[in-house]
């Protein structure tokens, strides 16, 4: 009897599994196709790697132009960097970043010492 019961349970499990497997394709085929995200479709476009040299736009040269300066820059020239302007802030950022790292390290050391002191 035990064998029959076990066989019966197994058959039931197999039938249920078959139903579940069968339901999958039926649902996919019969229903409205839903776009499935693929790895290639959703892969983020990698940002251009930063480089020191800013890519220069292709100069627009007027064909047949007699201009002695065929590519005229836009606007004025930015030929003065003050002491408070951007270049010095680069170093400031670096220093600030290092300070943050050291500060985080200091917190870690403090926590470790607390744990050792309390035996944790």
């Amino acid at each position: 009897m035990r064998i029959i019961r076990r066989t019966g349970s197994t058959a039931l499990a197999v039938a249920a599994t078959a139903l579940l497997i069968g339901a999958g394709p039926a649902f996919a085929d019969g229903g409205t196709p839903t776009p499935v995200p693929s790895s290639t479709a959703t892969a983020p476009t990698p940002a251009p790697a930063p480089s020191e040299a800013t890519p220069e736009p292709a100069p627009t040269v007027t064909s047949g132009s007699d201009d002695q300066v065929p590519v005229v820059p836009r606007g004025a020239a930015d030929t003065g960097v003050t002491t408070t302007a951007a270049p010095s802030s680069g170093d400031g950022t670096l220093i600030g970043g290092l300070a943050a790292v050291f500060a985080a390290g200091g917190v870690g050391v403090y926590v470790l010492r607390r744990r050792r002191t309390t035996g944790a």
């Binding site: 800013t54 890519p55 220069e56 100069p59 820059p73 836009r74 020239a77 030929t79």
Partner: peptide
């Protein structure tokens, strides 16, 4: 020198 990305003159 050439041009910067915004079209202004490079410095």
């Amino acid at each position: 020198l050439g041009l910067q990305a915004d079209g202004s003159v490079e410095v």
